[in-house]
Every structure is written in C-alpha cells, then in structure tokens.
C-alpha cells in the first residue's frame, strides 16, 4: 500500500475527467457549440459592417469565452458529488486540494482549450485585424486558467445546490473582470501597435494568484459539502 505515486494518481484523475467531459452528457462539446453559436450571433445582431465588427471582435470573443466557461463549470464537482464518486475520491492518496486542482486543470484542457483553438476562426468571422490573432490566442492561453480555477471555487460552493448554476454565475462573474480587462487590453494593444506585454503580465498574474488561492478555497467548500 506504500509507494503510491501521487503524481500518477493526479494524472489519472485528469485523464478520467477529460474522458468524462468528452463522453455523452459531458460539458465540453456543448460548451464549444455554445461558443460557436453565441459569437456567430453578433454579426447577425449588429449588422455586417466590417469596421464595427473589427472594433468589437476581441471583446466579444473574450466575453463569450467567459460565458462558455461558466456554462460548463456548474457540473465540475456536482456530477461527482451526485453519483458518490467524490466520496470515493476522498479515499485517494491525493489531498482534497490536489483533487480540486486536478479537476480544474482537466476542465481547462477538456473545455477551454478547444474554445481557444477555435477562436481564430471566429475572430476571422468578426473581421479582426491580422495583427491581433497571435495575441488573441496568447492572451486566452495565459488568462483562461484563471477562469477555471476561480470558477472552481464557485462550483465547489454550489456543489450541493439543486439550481446552483445561476448562483455560481453571480458569484464568479465579478471575479472574472480583471482577466477580461487585461486579456482584451492585450489584444487591443497588439492591434494598435502598442506594447501588449503589461496587459499580458497582469493577465498571467491573475492566473497565478488564482492557481494558489482557489485550491484552498475549493477544498474547504468541498469538505463542507461532504459532511
């Protein structure tokens, strides 16, 4: 029973969650679909004028990414809580802090990464200037881990609630504001040929702070729910 490698348990949990996210009833496919459709609605609603679309492009993609992330977050712990596998996880050699970290990482890989990969396509749809593409992907890569990690706190707090999704949105969306401001700022800076680095650095800082704080907060919330 000794010699259990904590890191291999950690990776097993990430693999399991990615597989679940992409299996039937998982959130990943739906999130990607939501992202595609929601962004596509903007040119239809605002009108096809190319300069207007180019102006709102980066902001639209960032905002819809936040919403797409929120859409998938409410099942982050709830599915495991409801079928009892969260109780089983409590008997793994991982601490609860590592368990919630693994689940947040799996959420980012399974749900957010596909959104990031498809974002240049939608940026083209919104007539975003060529200068912005690299920075859009880069800012999303650096900024979105904060969405998964901060979101995991909300997901842990609402794990035992039946209609937790709405409350989760209210709890988490305000905390997404810094990431949104600096993420969009980086893309706009790249388009207007100014230095995007300060924006990127701040986006990264938000991600790193959330990486440290959210596992502690989420684990505490899950502990309460498991009582």
């Amino acid at each position: 029973m000794t010699n259990i490698s904590v890191s291999s348990v950690f990776w097993s949990l990430i693999k399991r969650d990615i597989k679940l996210a992409w299996s039937q009833g998982g959130a990943a496919g739906m999130t990607l679909g939501f992202f595609l459709i929601a962004v596509t609605l903007f040119p239809l609603g605002i009108g096809p004028e190319a300069s207007t679309l180019a102006r709102i492009g980066p902001g639209t993609i960032w905002v819809i990414s936040l919403l797409a992330c929120l859409l998938s977050l409410d099942r982050l712990f709830q599915a495991d809580f409801e079928d009892g596998s969260l109780d089983d996880l409590a008997f793994s050699p991982l601490s609860l802090e590592l368990i919630v970290t693994a689940k947040a990482i799996a959420h980012w890989i399974a749900t957010i990464l596909p959104v990031i990969l498809i974002s240049p396509l939608l940026a083209a749809l919104l007539n975003m200037p060529n200068l912005g593409y690299k920075m859009l992907i880069l800012s999303l890569l650096i900024g979105t881990p904060a969405l998964s990690f901060v979101g995991s706190i909300g997901a842990a707090l609402t794990v035992a609630l039946r209609r937790g999704g709405v409350l989760l949105t209210l709890l988490v969306l305000p905390l997404y504001i810094p990431t949104l401001i600096f993420g969009v700022g980086a893309v706009e800076a790249a388009i207007s040929l100014t230095d995007p680095f300060p924006h990127l650095a701040l986006t990264g800082a938000v991600s790193m702070i959330s990486l440290i704080i959210s596992p502690l907060a989420s684990a505490a919330a899950i502990r309460l729910a498991l009582e």
Partner: peptide, 21 residues
C-alpha cells in the same frame, strides 16, 4: 459512485488508478 457513461471495465480501471496510481 458509478459513472453512467463508463463501461464496467473502464470504471474498474479508473477507480483503481485514482486510488493506487
């Protein structure tokens, strides 16, 4: 503690891996 979408073999596999690595 069962996942509807997993087969029984997958369940066993992941369960053991999450406990033992």
């Amino acid at each position: 503690g069962l996942k509807n979408t997993f087969t029984l073999l997958e369940h066993c596999n992941y369960f053991v891996r999450i406990i033992n690595g």
